[in-house]
């Protein structure tokens, strides 16, 4: 409960924030660089004197949206492929595991560079510069992180599909879809939820590395991951700079994790002893 409130608060802050805190995210004031928190700049400033609170609010929208969307993509794709591979006893299972192995072994950097090269302009033309980049980022991050989920789900399925309660359902004539949705999947959700929470944090951070490849948002767009990355070299000079994005990512992770736990408890009749 508290966690849902926490996440809502975080989302509210980044949505309403700009209307309350009306400082520009890009005003440069070299003289006022690297200042600690003060009344004029509650979160302090970065080395170019840009206001960190404004940047955190602006960046939070992108980071939360990218984090959540990419997590949903990776969890959805991973669960789907893992479930199919876990239920299938034939060629399909092998084919899907081959796909998983392939994606696990792909070196990400050249792949990303290739994707930018091939698709950036097309997507930009189709969805506009910002929408196109958002879709590309979500698909790229989600599309490169689903493999562990798929492997975990498949492993759970291999074990669960032989369990007594599933056999009972099968004997009672439940269709494979019903077996999966009603009986197996709820019991396989544990690792999926954990993977989901880890993926949110990973996606927020991954977004920042993408902009170093020219794939992410334009370099002047602040996001939490990006702010954290920029702050790392100034850790001993201006620790406040890193503290806020780091803390924000942590709070988001905690909130999403508890929501996930709650979700599982709601789906699973048996309560923790």
């Amino acid at each position: 409960m508290i966690s849902a409130v926490l996440l809502l608060l975080l989302i509210a802050a980044v949505v309403i924030g700009p209307f309350i805190w009306r400082v520009s995210i890009s005003d440069i004031d070299v003289v006022a660089g690297l200042q600690g928190p003060s009344l004029a700049h509650p979160f302090g400033t970065d080395d170019l004197g840009q206001d960190l609170l404004a940047r955190m609010i602006y960046g939070g929208r992108i980071s939360l949206a990218v984090g959540l969307a990419a997590m949903l993509v990776s969890v959805f794709v991973g669960t789907l492929i893992g479930a199919l591979a876990g239920m299938s006893r034939g060629a399909l299972g092998y084919a899907l595991m081959w796909l998983t192995d392939l994606f696990l072994s792909l070196p990400q950097l050249p792949l990303l560079l290739m994707l930018i090269y091939l698709f950036r302009d097309g997507l930009k033309a189709m969805f506009g510069p910002e929408g196109g980049i958002f879709i590309l980022i979500v698909l790229v991050i989600g599309g490169l992180r689903w493999m562990p989920v798929a492997r975990l789900v498949r492993a759970q399925f291999l074990s669960l599909r032989e369990k007594e309660f599933v056999e009972a359902a099968r004997a009672l004539g439940a269709s494979p879809v019903r077996q999966v949705v009603r009986h197996i999947l709820p019991n396989a959700l544990g690792p999926v939820i954990i993977a989901g929470t880890i993926d949110v944090a990973a996606a927020i951070i991954a977004e920042s590395t993408l902009s170093f490849l020219g794939l992410g948002f334009p370099p002047d767009t602040p996001t939490w991951g990006r702010i954290l990355y920029d702050a790392k070299d100034f850790l001993d000079i201006g620790p406040h700079w890193a503290l806020f994005p780091g803390g924000a990512i942590f709070i988001a992770v905690v909130a999403i994790n508890f929501i996930g736990d709650g979700l599982r408890d709601a789906l699973d009749a048996r309560k923790v002893i």
Partner: peptide, 25 residues
């Protein structure tokens, strides 16, 4: 270079020029 881009972009905006930044590996 990305910081220089930000500084130049800001001055251009003040003068009414819209600058789109792009960076390549």
């Amino acid at each position: 270079r990305q910081k220089t881009q930000a500084i130049v972009k800001q001055a251009c905006q003040k003068a009414g020029i819209d600058v789109e930044l792009k960076s390549v590996v």
